[in-house]
Design a protein around this nucleic acid. Structure first.
Lengths: 230, 230
DNA sequence: CAATAGAGTTAGGCGAACCTAAATTAATTT
DNA sequence: AAATTAATTTAGGTTCGCCTAACTCTATTG
């Protein structure tokens, strides 16, 4: 096991997480996409990419993008596990608001030891998803990323269950929470305005429900499936 | 309020904590002492001292040492509060072993938000001391450092209560725990060998007690008072 | 197929936080 | 008072992680 354990810096862990996420859609992660996601300049990414490749965490084909190696993927998943368990713990046990746990976990994931994280996981009964619906990798680096559709691609009349929302933006999360759109919620598409117009939908709520309208952009951040099982 | 809030780096917070602690004994903190405590070279301390002084966190009289300004002291106490509440939480709620919480808190204190810390404090019922007996500064930057004597200066026959132990060294803590020497424990000095020899003492324990012997060096890390009140 | 737009990389810099080695200042001894 | 010793600072250097500006590929398009 060439596993240097805790020797990765915060920024390095952030790059690996970003690359992992970008790679999920299939292709290699491009310099530009990484830069965009981490809000740093492409030139800086080029520099870091060289270092990550030197450390054997990624492979880099110049001008064609970057892929995680086995070791890089494992490191990314360890960080992701830390992040998501922290999010669970912060919301469920300490009651931090839904929209703030991401930011907090983003900093703590680089400082918390594996042992601490496992104790949190145990206290929570080994959660399978974080508060935004993202799956939590297991200790031994497995995740099953469910196949979900973005709400933005739903057709009129469909009845869907919200499974996951993108968690980067606190304001967006706060707004979605206000609308009742969170993992587990059931929605029905009432109407789709053409040309990327707003989606009108019914959101089931305990003791009633409500009609809501959201824009294409926001809907693209919400992932659903047809499942009615909890 | 010239309170730049969260803008201090981890190393800066560590320097301020170290200086705070060194200043507690009275005199200004010397470059060498800071270097020793942080395990970095005196030259590096000289460099950082300039930066801290530039930021108005300390005053520096060249060749005579360093003192915290009001702002520096406040920042040190905020970090100390974070550190000690984390230590409490990690032991009491998450069950991390006594000798490992210091190290863990040392990293987390730079990442945890004030809000998170206050939630932990609330969950614990606003603790007044950390697991090693150190007082926890209040939100508004007050601490009362009790006047304690090192166990190394106790005289034969005295009956004393352990109030605090230095927490930097995990092995030392583990050993003290084995001996039953922890905050709250009651001890009686049975014998003091001359020339800095070992101290023989009786340690009260639930359902009995035990005779123990510890060296001068270790005894200097244990602080006691005469109090019998809990 | 040459021009160009856009993505990616290189060059050169900067600040933070460390280092070693070489002054320098202060304190202590003789 | 001079000399030694100890503490401190300065000088010069490193790595990490970022930046801007300039250059170089690649791919598209007229």
């Amino acid at each position: 096991m060439a596993r240097p354990a805790l020797s990765l810096t915060g920024p390095v862990e952030d790059y690996l997480k970003a690359i992992y996420d970008l790679e999920r859609v299939g292709e290699a992660a491009s310099t530009n996409d990484i830069a965009l996601r981490l809000a740093i300049s492409p030139a800086s990414v080029s520099g870091m990419v060289r270092r990550l490749a030197d450390q054997g965490l990624i492979t880099h084909e110049p001008y064609r993008g970057v892929r995680l190696t086995r070791g890089g993927r494992d490191a990314a998943l360890r960080t992701l596990r830390r992040h998501r368990i922290l999010e669970c713990y912060l919301t469920e046990v300490l009651g931090l608001p839904w929209d703030r746990v991401h930011e907090e976990a983003e900093r703590m994931e680089h400082a918390a030891s594996e042992e601490l994280i496992e104790r949190m996981a145990a206290a929570l009964g080994d959660p399978k998803q974080d508060p935004h619906g993202a799956p939590i990798p297991t200790r031994d680096g497995r995740v099953e990323e469910a196949t979900l559709r973005p709400l933005s691609e739903a057709r009129q009349g469909e009845r869907l269950r919200v499974r996951r929302v993108q968690d980067e933006n606190a304001e967006r999360l706060r707004y979605l929470a206000e609308l009742g759109i969170r993992p587990g919620a059931v929605v029905r598409i009432l109407d789709r305005a053409p040309f990327d117009g707003p989606i009108t939908l019914w959101v089931d709520e305990p003791g009633g429900g409500a009609t809501r309208a959201i824009g294409e952009g926001l809907a693209a951040q919400v992932y659903v499936d047809a499942g009615t099982s909890d």
